[in-house]
Structures are given as C-alpha cells and as structure tokens.
Design a protein around this nucleic acid. Structure first.
Lengths: 189, 189
DNA sequence: TTGCTATTAGTACCTAGTCATAATTCAAAT
DNA sequence: ATTTGAATTATGACTAGGTACTAATAGCAA
C-alpha cells in the first residue's frame, strides 16, 4: 500500500514525533521510497535531521535538570518576605495531571506548597517535620495555582507556616507545615 | 598552566559530566592540547564520542517521559493487593535531594507515599482529600526508601490509607491519607 | 504531445568522529 | 650527553548521516 505524498508526509510527522531517533534510511525503508524523497519531505515539513532532533531532546532534558537543581522552588516565586510571607504561581500542565482524568496529582500541589514553605524560612536550612494538608477542590489541566505562604508561629527551632493555594478565588489546597531549621536537624523534609 | 596527563584526564571527566555536549575540538582548545590527545584520553577513560553522549541523554529523557505517562506510580511497585496493601521502592538520587545538603526533599517522599495510596485503591478513580504526614528521619542521597501502604478503613466513598516509609528498618516517613473514590469526586489529590 | 509534479539519482561537501601507523617531543635515568 | 619510554602530535583512510545542488526520469492529466 503505497501512500501519496500528502499522506506520507502526514505519517512521517507522527512517526518522527513518536520515534525521533529514526534515520532517513530507516524512514525510506518504512515508506518504500528513496532516501531523497524522505529528505525532500523533511525539507518541506521543516523537520531537522536526526542528529539535531536527538540534540534537541537532550538539551531540553539537560536544561530541565539544571533548572531543577538551581531553582529549588517548584513554581515561580513572585513575592518573598523572609520569615513572613511568600507567593508562588504554578501552571498545571500535562505532566502534572492524571493522563486519563486531567485532574492534578496531589503531590504537585503539595510540592508547590512545601517548597514555598521551605523558601520563606530565613535560615540556611529548613526541613519539613510535620504537615497537615487538605485538598479542597480539584485542579484541572491548564489552571494556574497561586500558593500563599504565611509564617504563623516562630519558635527557636520550629517555624509553623500556613499555605493556602487558590485557583482564581477558590481555595484548592491548604496546609500547615511545621518546619525545623538549622541546628536542630533531626528531622527531614 | 598546562596540566599533566593525570590532572587533565581528571578535569576532562568533570568537564564532560557538566557539559556533555562539548566536542573534542572544543576540549582540545580548552586544555591547550591537540584533538588527538583528547581522543586518546577519551579512549583511556572509556568516554564515548559527543554524538553518543548526546544520544544517551536524549534516550534517557525519552524513556523517562514514556514511563512516567504509562506508569503513574512514583517508585517501583513490588507488591499490590488491591484495597488491602501495597509496597513500593524508590531510590533517592541526585534529582531528589537538595543539592547543597544532599538531604531528600519532602515532596518526593510524599509523592511516593501518595501515589502508592492512590494505586492501592481498587476503583477507577481515587483522589486524596486529606493527609496527615510526619517526616521522622532525614533521607540522604543514595538511600532506598520502602513505602508500605495499608488500607485501614473503608467507607462507601472514603478509604483511609496509612503509609509508612522506611530506610532499612528505620521509619523515615508516615502519613494517613483520606482518599475519595469514584462518584463522590468533589475533592482532589 | 506537452506540461507539471513527484520521485529518484548523482556529485561535492560537511561534521565529528574511528582506527591504525608513524613521527616528534620531553623528561628522567644511565 | 645520550638513551629510553611515555606522552603527544600528525597523517591518512574510512564512517554515518547528513546538506545543497543539479539533473534525469516517471506518472498522469489536459
């Protein structure tokens, strides 16, 4: 079953999207055409060569790894008063939701809130000791969650941080985090 | 400051680890030696060529993306009795810990426990409504955390799951998760 | 048969290498 | 001072997976 140009190019796109590491030669075999035809197709569809595609995937991954270790807060911090309050925004994308239901996975809401609680503490080291959390409304793919952290109690070694997360005006998550700091690091988070 | 062979090879390794997309030519310039020397070094250190390195990073990333969307549990499930109990193992690597202190970030422990609590529920849909969690000991890079989930209460719409996570015999995390299921999905997790 | 698109072929060139051999440099030991 | 051996550099042939360009051929409709 030989395909016409249009169909072949259609299939070519999805094939390359699914298996980006495929070479022109392999594609030529797959579609029963010459290598030159595949190259013309890629030219028309503006699909780069296999080595560029591989590199693209790798660079993306590498950047992701880098930014994760540099910026240790999950979400974008838009306000930060050390030992007082902080606000971060996280947009829930495909990677944050259950693929079937498109509902956000709880640990991402937790991660946003928890890392904000860590960030608000004005100390070299802050670790979560305890947390009491409520998920009050589903978050769906595409929604932007605004997390607001407030320091509610500050002891010598422990700080209690309250975090409320909203979509628009609606509360979607709230949690009380008991944080340990600096010297007294028997516990973790 | 020209380096001797040993020091150069030492630096070469860390350079390539940090910037794996560097070519032999760039490395030769960086170290003030010929390309051939770099190639001999790579041969001795068993470091593959740049295109292989790029591919390696890309393949890793690609596999990760695939497995994340297929298998939605964080960690490896090694036992699962639906509506009864489940066990998963997660090895804490560099990406799970604070880069400075090498101590595990709390939300990864939470994610392992929470996703196991979701998995143990024998229903189409299970979402976390509430959770009460304690971090009882730090987890360090390289440690393997075994999470054990037990269903402790099963109501019509809610199921309570208790999860305890251990490194060896030591309790590092424990949490009570109140899960909603199926029809009654007003809340989320 | 002409005209047009699609396809295939062929050539020169490119990058970033491998593999093998040979030549050169340098420093330490005799 | 010379020799020896390791380290370094050079050279040439070859590879994969391409780009860029030109030219030839195939298929089909007006």
């Amino acid at each position: 079953m030989k395909l016409n140009k249009k169909d072949r190019q259609q299939m070519l796109q999805t094939t390359i999207r699914n298996t980006p590491f495929i070479t022109d030669e392999e594609l030529a075999n797959k579609f029963g055409v010459s290598i030159q035809t595949i190259r013309l197709d890629r030219l028309e569809l503006k699909i780069p060569e296999v080595r560029e595609r591989i590199k693209h995937v790798a660079v993306q991954h590498f950047d992701q790894v880098k930014s994760l270790s540099i910026d240790e807060v999950i979400g974008e911090v838009i306000d930060l008063q050390l030992d007082q309050s902080a606000i971060s925004i996280l947009e829930f994308k495909r990677e944050h939701v259950f693929s079937r239901t498109k509902i956000a996975r709880g640990h991402h809401l937790f991660a946003q809130a928890n890392s904000l609680a860590v960030a608000v503490i004005d100390d070299e080291l802050a670790l979560t000791a305890k947390a009491n959390i409520r998920f009050t409304r589903q978050v769906k793919e595409g929604e932007r969650v605004v997390a607001k952290a407030n320091v509610v109690k500050k002891g010598k070694f422990r700080t209690t941080v309250e975090v409320n997360s909203y979509v628009e005006k609606e509360l979607v998550f709230s949690g009380d985090f008991v944080m340990y700091r600096k010297e007294d690091v028997q516990r973790e988070g």
